[in-house]
Each structure stands twice: as structure tokens, then as C-alpha cells.
Design a binder for these strands. Structure first.
Lengths: 200, 200
DNA sequence: CTAGCTTTGTGAAGTATTTCACAAGCATTC
DNA sequence: GAATGCTTGTGAAATACTTCACAAAGCTAG
């Protein structure tokens, strides 16, 4: 999050930014910003703030964005489409090496830069291209089984959009996004109209 | 999350479930399950576990899912499409009353059950249909301005897919989903290969 | 009705995270 | 070069969250 806004400031030519300013942009507190950044080192200058460009560089390094990650998108439905075409990924060092589906009618169709490929080729492609990240956008039923296969082929991180709990071995990272659940939590907030909000 | 798996168990005819079982399904601990549920009341029977159907009902009530929420989807791009067609929403009491876009070429096209409508009609539609939830799937630049309008018309909760920080007044709830950021956090996990994972 | 097994609900303990508050450092001005 | 005004970095305090551990129930069998 800090990186996003620092890059923004950088392109607009800003040289430095204070923890106060970053906090406002990111919707947090100055103390939080300073504690967070201090975990990785001491980047700021007292009296001045943080050097925008330098800190961006450093954060990209910390996040492992200085080299390109190869990504497979599993599932050529609407979510898969949204992700495959998202220019933001490429810009940030994530190269989509393939979109995979079981549906014969979809295989071979062009999709953004890539072509939909058969799920049968998934494993060999992951190995050949050394893909380490998979985006899962398939129905819940097949999700676990497909994940297991992908991990055997070398996937080490999964971004899961399937509305189901996935389990992975300890050496694999997992993030899940469940849109129905997000809406339900909004429903909860509305129903109980808390004074708090901003629960990103 | 508990609701999802309880409903699952319910359709499969299960009568009761222990905190241990729910924990396994949801990827958490039995103590966590019990503490979470106890916040809202005392639903279980000692020695037996929780009554699956009854607890589902209660959770739906707590989450405010017993009545229908009307939802607008703002932005008829790929993400908007994915959401508009997602059957899961309707099943869970979220009725999409309209998909809105500025692009003349998209306006009037059929989209799932609905038709893409002009952004000009957004405000009056929100008021007439009493929509309270908006899903934001438009480019970052216009996001804040569109949100402000929607809130003036009566929107009280926003699910934001635009890759930018949105600010809302205290009586409005906000959840943001940022796919690039999710991938970046996976990149971080990979780069630093922590033993921990499962950071949903 | 009692013994034995199971499982909840919950204070207390243990961790983790966030906020406070202030000394120390840097830039600018006079 | 000293005084002033900002802003960081960070221990300590305050909060929040998670796990432990166990008494209190409920169910089953005999």
C-alpha cells in the first residue's frame, strides 16, 4: 500500500513525504507508518520525511518485485478474463504465461495477449516456464484437486478466487478473495451500523 | 466463513457440528470458533456441538441476510461482468438492480439478467430502488467522485475494486479488494519464504 | 441413577499489534 | 553558529486478539 502511493508521489515529482502524509494517503496513522517502515530499516530523514524514490526502490526490493514473476491463470471464466487482461499486473512484474480451462469450446481462443490452453498442459507449462504463482478462478468443486496438481508441478503461491477453503503445504503461500463473503460483511456492517468503517 | 460451511453441512443433512469440526473446515482453531460464536450468544450444546441448521439461521440473521439487499454495479468492464453474472450473489440475497457505465458503446447491451445503463441514471436509480450497496469496478481516476455521488443518492456500503484509496464518511462502510496488491503480498511471501502461510 | 465420555463457554494467561510520547537529528534562518 | 521548527525512530504503555485450561453440561449405556 505504501509502495502504491509512493510511486504515485514519485511520478508527480515529489522528493520526500512525511509519515503524516503517507498515513493520510493510506488511511492509517503516522505512528503506524513509522513502525511499519522501521521494521525493514531506517529510511527517513528526521525533520524531512522519507525520500520518495529511494523508498519506493527499497520497498520493491523488499516485496521481491525487482524480478519478473511468471503467473498462470487457472479458469477462463469472467474472473480469469478480468485478471488476464489487467494491464496493472504486467506493469508490476507479473507476466501471465497462460490461461487454462477444461472447456473445449474455450481452448484455443485468444485472450488478451495469450490463448486459452487446455488444463492438460498446465503441469508441463508450469515446469517449463518455471511459473511460481497461480491464480485460481475455477468452481469450488475442482479447486483443491487442481491446486494439488499445480503445487506438484512447482507452484509456490496461490491467489484463490474460488469460494472454498483451500489447504496447502507449509512451503506454499495462499491468499483467498471471496467476493460473496465481502458483500456479506458489508451487509453485517449495514445491519448493525457501527460507527467504525474503513475495514479494508 | 462459518456460515458458508454450516450451510454446506446442512444441505448434506448434518444435524450438529463441533467447534473442532468447524475449525478444521475453516482452517482455524476450536477455541477460536467458540470465542467467535460466543460473542453473539450461546448456541451450542455441551457434549454435542452446535445445531447446524439453527446456527445457520442465526448467523444469517446476524449478518443481515434475511432480507434482500439491492446492489448497483458501477463499471461494465471485466470485473463488473464477473460480478454481474455471479449466481452466488442472488442466492445470498444480493439483487443486482443495474450495471452502469459511461461508455456509449456498452450502454444498452444485455448483461446477465440486466442491461448496461448510463451512469447518468445511476443516482435516480439508487434512490428509486433504494439500493444501499455499490460495487465499484471502474478505473482509479473517477472512483472517488463516483463514490461521492453514489453516497449522496443513498448508498451506505461500498465494495471497491478500483486500485485506489477511497474515503467515505463515517456512516458508510467500505471494503477494498486490490488484486495487484494481493499478488504483491504473495511475491513478498515467496521472496522471503516464511514458514507461515494461510494468510487469508 | 451413576459413570464415563464428549464438548461447550469462558475467565485467565499469553501474544501481537497499535498508539503514545519524546529524545535525537536535520534543515533553515538570522 | 545558535535558535527554531519539523519529523523520524523507538521504548513503553495501552489495546486487541488468540490460546489455554477447566468447570459445567449433556448424552449414552448399563
Amino acid at each position: 500500500m505504501y509502495l502504491r502511493y509512493l510511486e504515485d508521489l514519485d511520478t508527480r515529482g515529489r522528493e520526500t513525504a512525511s509519515s503524516d502524509e503517507l498515513a493520510q494517503l493510506c488511511g492509517t496513522t503516522p505512528a503506524q507508518v513509522r513502525k511499519d517502515l522501521s521494521f525493514f530499516g531506517s529510511f527517513g530523514k528526521r525533520g524531512l520525511g522519507y525520500p520518495v524514490h529511494e523508498l519506493s526502490d527499497r520497498l520493491r526490493q523488499i516485496l521481491g518485485l525487482e524480478h519478473e514473476w511468471r503467473v498462470v491463470i487457472i479458469g477462463a471464466g469472467k474472473i480469469g478474463a478480468a485478471l488476464a487482461n489487467y494491464r496493472g499486473f504486467l506493469q508490476r512484474g507479473f507476466r501471465v504465461i497462460g490461461v487454462y480451462d477444461n472447456d473445449e469450446r474455450k481452448i484455443g481462443q485468444p485472450w488478451g495477449d495469450a490463448t486459452v490452453r487446455s488444463m492438460k498442459e498446465l503441469d508441463s507449462d508450469i515446469e517449463r516456464e518455471e511459473a511460481r504463482i497461480a491464480v485460481l478462478a475455477i468452481p469450488a468443486d475442482d479447486a483443491q484437486q487442481v491446486v494439488d496438481r499445480a503445487i506438484r508441478s512447482g507452484i509456490r503461491a496461490i491467489l484463490n478466487f474460488a469460494p472454498t477453503q483451500i489447504t496447502v503445504p507449509p512451503h506454499v503461500s495462499l491468499k483467498s478473495v471471496n467476493m460473496a463473503m465481502e458483500l456479506e460483511s458489508l451487509s453485517f456492517a449495514l445491519t448493525n451500523s457501527f460507527p467504525e468503517n474503513e475495514s479494508d
